[in-house]
């Protein structure tokens, strides 16, 4: 029974703690991510969301706590477990982190070229297939700077899924985008998550869009997880921090609508 539960959860984070000198960023952070689901970590700027993702990406080393991926603990010195984790996971960065000196096709081919022993023809075939699935195959010879913001996001996702990962981590995928594009990005995450069947962990502060696309949400506030549940539970929660965060987002939306309606210059 315990094994069945473990199998059901692809990622488990337990009592994660991280501080930079005196400044505590993450305190006792823990949650489970179910296989094949979209799990979103919400929180205001400075709540520790990006640091959490950096700890998962092994860019930052947590002070204490445990990260378990598919039943295997990612100990600080367990290079083999981390290598396996990297083989089976992908990250999509806030700024896309595309290689500006490589074309779209070369960007997508890069992880296959460097981490597999596939023949060049197979790498090209799989990369073109990923670009086609994301509907940007006609731009395969263009450089990232020649693509629009939305296309760059899709290109970054194509690069993330080309290795057929079991889990994809999204760091603020809608940062700096207008509301229309924010919706489009979350629709894209939901659509391709279903299409490719990967598990998604999204870190964002865009509440309405995240709630629509997620199976489960957690709220990170001042480095602590103060809520975890379904999007419905989040919407109806009377937890003071949850309702405070929700209300502040709604109030901001209302204020922006009012400014727009009154044509009031900011």
């Amino acid at each position: 029974m315990i094994e069945a539960v473990a199998q059901d959860h692809i990622l488990r984070i337990e009592a994660l703690h991280k501080s930079f000198g005196e400044h505590v960023v993450l305190t006792n952070v823990g949650f489970d991510v179910r296989r094949g689901s979209v799990f979103t970590v919400l929180g205001p700027s400075g709540a520790g969301k990006s640091v959490l993702l950096k700890c998962l990406a092994d860019v930052e080393r947590p002070d204490s706590g445990r990260i378990t991926f598919d039943g295997r603990s990612l100990g600080p010195d367990d290079a083999e477990a981390k290598a396996e984790f990297r083989r089976r996971c992908s990250f999509l960065f806030q700024g896309n982190a595309l290689f500006d000196s490589l074309t779209a096709l070369e960007n997508v081919s890069l992880p296959l070229e460097q981490t597999t022993t596939l023949a060049d023809s197979e790498i090209r075939k799989r990369s073109m297939e990923a670009l086609r699935q994301l509907e940007i195959d006609t731009f395969c010879d263009r450089y990232p700077s020649q693509l629009s913001g939305g296309m760059q996001k899709r290109l970054a996702l194509a690069r993330a899924i080309v290795t057929r990962p079991e889990m994809v981590f999204f760091d603020e995928p809608t940062a700096g985008l207008d509301p229309l594009r924010r919706n489009a990005v979350f629709s894209m995450i939901a659509k391709y998550q279903r299409q490719f069947g990967f598990t998604a962990l999204v870190v964002t502060h865009d509440v309405p869009e995240a709630l629509v696309a997620s199976d489960r949400v957690a709220l990170l506030e001042k480095g602590r997880i103060c809520f975890e549940g379904s999007p419905e539970e989040f919407t109806s929660s009377h937890h003071p921090i949850v309702s405070g965060f929700r209300d502040s987002v709604e109030a901001l939306g209302a204020a922006l609508r009012s400014i727009r309606n009154n044509n009031d210059p900011l």
């Binding site: 990406a57 990297r86 990250f91 460097q114 981490t115």
Partner: peptide, 25 residues
């Protein structure tokens, strides 16, 4: 300058998360 910009735009971190050695690449 090129490596500095790649560091700034998270390209080096992206390589590491792909399992590609940024030193080797």
């Amino acid at each position: 300058a090129e490596l500095g910009i790649q560091r700034n735009s998270e390209q080096i971190v992206a390589l590491e998360t792909m399992g590609v050695s940024s030193h080797g690449y």
